[in-house]
Design a protein around this nucleic acid. Structure first.
Lengths: 208, 208
DNA sequence: TGGGTATCTGAATAGTGTTCAGATTATGGG
DNA sequence: CCCATAATCTGAACACTATTCAGATACCCA
């Protein structure tokens, strides 16, 4: 199945027995394999082999294969919320225009992440990583970012107070759902910008 | 891992060599296993064993394990759109109230399906089944049902013409996303009804 | 320097998807 | 009715997987 041999870890190609910090190297190797082969079809042995270590070595850092995947999921949630912070931070200003751009950019970043790395997105939201308390925490951070963005929209008079109440929920779920439906080939890619148009319009109105 | 032995296929417990129609029996066994163990962790051998057949027999009906899963996905898409038809058909009348109830019921049925069988939902939308042309077809059928429902809402003056344009996209993606986020434990279950409230409100307004 | 400990290996077990030669049964034509 | 042919299923094999554990290795601190 594996047509081309991948090179070992870049940080420590052939160190003496003890590998600097395996845990990180394993996660890095795993994320690359998942990206290519999907969250199912991840092989523990392949991860170990790519790092240049015995399969058994993995079990000193993760009790399970599923635990490795869960840890990977946590890492991806953090990475994703960092991308959001960068994206929204890149648009400055207190004008209504800036607030609207920020709103759209939050959604776009979410979708771009999903669309550029579908297999990682599937890992995060496909029931692979058992979220106990960690993942929820990171998700709430992204949620707060969206919440703050909607506050700006309300302050600048772009959205109504009524829709402010439901804006978070609708925006988040719609962007999440669109990401899934598009990467699974059920919705066309162009649908996403259209969705953003619709969402912005919906946020404007909504009063009885 | 398997604590309790499951009984053989009900239709033909121990027929003579040739099993009436395997393909259906295999799919039925597979859907039960996926429901319990998740779309990953599905074992071809376990499917064969539950039907009471050799593992090799599967390959006369499906070239692959992934093909079996894809076929299962197709079946689930059909089943889901049938549930939608039943749900929306149960609410009759041309009043605005009936139209609103239908709108909510479409979303609820979608979510109820996801929430009651999370592993089947994950199979459908988690990148397991490679949709070529089939899955899209069934999805479009469900899409048309929602579309017709929105037409009723427009005709009875519940929603504005502007939001009619984006209503399908927003509603579908939001319900899809909420289903995912809730079954993965990221959003609380109560959020769904709140989302429906918000969606209904959003459909009402939206005009500039 | 030596002892203790964290780290990693090698081999073994049980289970997986997949292939293929051959056994078994159904089916249709004489 | 019987036989040849085709469809269906089995058994064993291969390469691969996760997981366990006794033991080898290298680091670190006393």
């Amino acid at each position: 199945m594996s047509s081309s041999k991948v090179l070992k870890a870049k940080s420590a190609p052939r160190e003496n027995y003890h590998h600097g910090d395996l845990e990180a190297a394993l996660l890095e190797a795993a994320v690359n394999l998942v990206r290519v082969n999907g969250p199912d079809h991840l092989s523990l042995r392949a991860v170990a082999e790519q790092v240049g270590v015995s399969p058994s070595a993995v079990y000193h850092y993760f009790p399970d294969k599923d635990s490795l995947i869960s840890a990977l999921g946590d890492q991806l949630f953090i990475k994703m919320s960092e991308m959001q912070r960068v994206a929204v931070g890149g648009i400055r200003g207190t004008s209504a225009r800036a607030a609207r751009l920020r709103y759209r950019e939050i959604g776009r970043t979410y979708f771009r992440w999903a669309n550029s790395e579908p297999n990682l997105f599937r890992l995060m939201f496909g029931g692979f990583c058992k979220i106990e308390k960690r993942g929820t925490h990171e998700s709430e951070e992204a949620f707060l970012m969206l919440s703050k963005c909607l506050d700006d929209l309300l302050a600048t008079g772009v959205i109504t107070a009524t829709m402010r109440r439901y804006g978070e929920l609708i925006s988040w779920t719609a962007v999440q759902g669109a990401s899934t439906l598009i990467i699974e080939g059920i919705l066309p890619e162009e649908a996403f910008e259209e969705l953003l148009d619709g969402l912005e319009l919906a946020m404007r109105g909504g009063a009885k």
